[in-house]
Amino acid sequence: MFASLSRRRVILLVVLTCLLLITLDKRGNPVIDRARGVFATLIMRPVDTATNTVVLPLERAWDGITNYDDLKKERDALYDQVQHMRGNDVKAQTAILEAQELLRVTELSDALGYTAVVAQVVGDSPSNFQNTVEINVGTARGVKVGMPVTDGAGLIGKITKVFPDHSIVLLATDPSYAIAAQILATPEEVAAETEVSTPSGIFVPDSTTTSSTTTLPFDLPDPAISTTTTSSTLPPVTTTTILQIIRETGALEGQGIGRPLVLRFTDSSSAVTSVRVGSIVDTAGGNSSLAPHGIPIGIVTRVVTETGSSNAVVEVTLNARLERLNFVAVLLFEPNQNAVGR
């Protein structure tokens, strides 16, 4: 190859060629730029592809052999990271659900118009014979014995013991729990009552028209006035029906865990016919009541007529799910001290 040239001449030729090329390139030569482009795309790329085909499997195999421990550690670390992220995801979802629950609890207390202290259930009763829960607010937040406790769905019980930073809530299902309650006839029932002839002496209808929405369950539309608009080929006709709310009051008592509450009417001559399954039950209020008027409690699920008596035992199922309590609201309603003692 280099037989015709002496060693020094070859080296000199190399050096001079390099210097020439450097000079041309530094001054900006389009031919060199084009040569670079052609070299990169037409020559190096296919060579790289071919080399990669051979080298890549070998490289991976080598990596697998030499970096096995590192890969395992990395995999473990990533697994931990994924678990951590899953945990965070669950936390975030829990936070959203808790916020929604909290909002529901506060919505009810706001609708009732009383100041409420939101609390979280932190403990359950250790005994099988006490239906209580422990909440994380106490006297420091203004909580007192006898105050009613609600969740988003309705009344759940009352405060029976209070400490500076926690309290015990006696749940409504406890046999020692009792509260004045009233049954509100649903609009359908009222409509039925207005159509059916009422036997005299069976019940005393309260013919007063409700004037305040506080006497109604929080999630029901105002049944006092309903407006119906009919649209058809005929000119639209708007009819307005004024509904009456019929009340039956009595004492609502717990019967134990998992059993419905029982409502015993104050007036023994109360009519059975006026109480129907599905009627709404809320607190009756009054001077001697533990709770203010209008807190939703539940619905009538069964009406039992006692043999040989005109009295009816009405079973009421709570709106609240006592086995799933989390956030609750203590209404800062101070009941009559005589009622508290009962």
Binding site: F2, V10, I11, V14, C18, L21, D25, F39
Partner: peptide
């Protein structure tokens, strides 16, 4: 030997230069 080494360096260095961003002839030299 030195002459063949220089030529090999020149050619392979030139390929290096063409592929990279160094001035053409620098790595070759």
């Amino acid at each position: 030997g030195p002459d063949r080494g220089a030529v090999a360096g020149f050619v392979l260095g030139l390929l290096y230069d063409l592929n990279g961003t160094t001035p053409l002839g620098l790595v070759a030299l």
